[in-house]
């Protein structure tokens, strides 16, 4: 039997591990809904993680690190937006290029800035549990004691869902990905909407990245996102471009990752590789049409 304690730990770590995916995934969802397949989520997250770590280490203030992370991603996001909108570049190619560039730049920057001090812990955020929820026996601390960014992420996810559903901005974003001509004819700027969407993806991804470096583990390592950005894209596909299902996919992927640590502890012998592979496998099955009909935005990857 699984004890309540270990279930609680599992749920808690699933949420923690899902958080960076969730933020990147929400960001990516908005940009894909607006018609930009933004492959540079990985690079954007890495930028956030690196700049957040540097900012926090230099100032000793994690909150300044967070601000620094969000600021540093802007040029990356604007580069992606410029390439895929104004220059009408292949969105996949430009995204992969940015990822390579960011991986190189952050690795170099990390060696130059931290060098020998690389084992130092970087000041990071503490954990916090909401009142009442944190007091629930067994589950309270294990599930709800999280870095506050987790709660911020959830709030943004809900906010994004509401904005997409009930506001003019949400309508414009949806239309820009579905039928950009209608947006253009209505007097709105397709490019403007898409620039905004990509910038939002950048900010969200950077938030997810800073959570990784100064929220979760309080250090930076080379290429520390390890494909989380691609996983976020997979979550959007798996979620069929719907926000609720995307959030669900992120939690599922987070749980799959948590199992890697949980199962060996429980004495279950499942190859580690299989668990790491699981989210990609699920996403693959989803795009292969085995998990219901897929309905991507009609103008995804088509520059305006």
């Amino acid at each position: 039997m699984i004890s309540a304690e270990s279930a609680a730990v599992f749920i808690g770590s699933s949420i923690r591990l899902a958080t960076p995916l969730l933020m990147g995934g929400i960001g990516e969802l908005v940009s894909e809904r607006a018609g930009v397949l933004n492959m540079s989520v990985e690079g954007m997250m890495l930028t956030g993680a690196f700049a957040g770590a540097v900012g926090s280490w230099a100032t000793g203030q994690p909150i300044l690190g967070l601000a620094f992370g969000l600021l540093a991603v802007l040029p990356v996001a604007l580069l992606q937006a410029w390439l895929s909108n104004t220059l009408r570049a292949n969105q996949i190619v430009s995204g992969i290029g940015i990822n390579i560039l960011v991986l190189g730049a952050t690795t170099l920057g990390y060696r130059e800035i931290f060098g020998e001090r690389s084992s130092d812990e970087i000041p990071g955020f503490g954990k916090w549990a909401p009142p009442f929820l944190g007091d629930i026996p067994v589950f309270g601390q294990a599930v709800f004691l999280q870095v506050w960014i987790v709660y911020l992420g959830l709030a943004i996810a809900i906010g994004t869902a509401l904005v997409l559903r009930f506001t003019a901005i949400g309508l414009a974003v949806h239309a820009a990905g579905m039928e950009p001509r209608a947006v253009d004819k209505s007097g709105l700027s397709v490019r403007g909407i898409r620039y905004g969407a990509v910038t939002f993806t950048g900010l969200m991804s950077a938030l997810g990245g800073t959570f990784l470096s100064i929220g979760d583990i309080h250090t930076f390592t080379e290429g520390m996102t390890r494909g989380a950005g691609y996983l976020a894209i997979a979550a959007v596909i798996f979620g069929n471009w719907r926000i609720g299902r995307t959030i669900g996919a992120c939690l599922l992927f987070g749980a799959a990752t948590a199992l890697q640590f949980q199962l060996p502890a429980m004495g279950v012998d499942i190859p580690n590789a299989l668990l790491i592979m699981l989210p990609y496998l699920l996403a693959f099955l989803a795009v292969a049409g085995l998990v219901g009909r897929q309905s991507a935005p009609a103008s995804l990857t088509v520059p305006w």
């Binding site: 009930f166 506001t167 003019a168 309508l171 414009a172 949806h174 239309a175 579905m178 039928e179 001509r181 209608a182 947006v183 253009d184 004819k185 209505s186 007097g187 709105l188």
Partner: peptide, 23 residues
Amino acid sequence: HFSLVPDLTVVDNLLLGQARGIL
């Protein structure tokens, strides 16, 4: 050539570009 978003309602198509803030 019409420029309507096929998976939206008539009202949403009319509001596109016209409305601000909450629909």
